[in-house]
Simulated assay, not measured.
Amino acid sequence: MESKKLAIEFGNKVRNKRKSLGITQENLALRCKFDRTYGGIIERGEVNITLEKVYRLAAVLECDVKELLP
């Protein structure tokens, strides 16, 4: 699968999980110790993030990593 498509699908899963928990993008970034704009960049699929950041997101979103993977 194309990397851009993977990043977009991953971002959509992060967005859906974040919204289901009622967390803002800014609050998610704060909890993950990301720059405040980084959550939006991830959710739009504009970046391929590191595995470390995937695990950090999963922990903050209270889910298993595999729930975020396409």
Rank of each mutant, 00 (worst) to 15 (best):
E67K: 10
R31L: 15
E62V: 10
R44Q: 12
K33T: 12
T24S: 14
G40V: 00
G11E: 02
V65A: 15
K13M: 10
A29E: 09
A58V: 06
L57C: 01
L57N: 00
L57M: 00
R15I: 11
L69K: 07
T24W: 06
V60W: 01
L69W: 04
V47W: 01
G40I: 10
T37C: 03
L51E: 08
D64Q: 11
I41W: 05
T24G: 07
L61I: 08
G22Q: 12
A59H: 09
A59P: 07
Y38C: 05
S20C: 13
R36G: 05
I49C: 06
D64V: 05
N16G: 12
N16V: 12
R44V: 03
G40F: 00
I23Y: 03
K4H: 12
R18Y: 02
G39E: 05
L68D: 15
P70Y: 00
I49W: 02
Y38M: 12
L6F: 11
T24H: 03
E67I: 04
R18H: 08
E9G: 00
I23D: 01
E26I: 15
G22Y: 08
C63H: 06
G11W: 03
L57D: 00
V65M: 02
Y55L: 14
A7H: 06
S3T: 15
G45A: 03
R56K: 15
E62H: 07
S3P: 10
D64W: 00
L51T: 14
T50Y: 07
R18K: 05
E67L: 13
V47Q: 11
C63Q: 13
T50F: 03
E43C: 11
I42V: 15
K19Q: 12
R44E: 04
N48H: 07
P70E: 06
Y55W: 14
T37F: 00
Y55T: 11
T24M: 10
K66F: 12
I42H: 04
C63P: 11
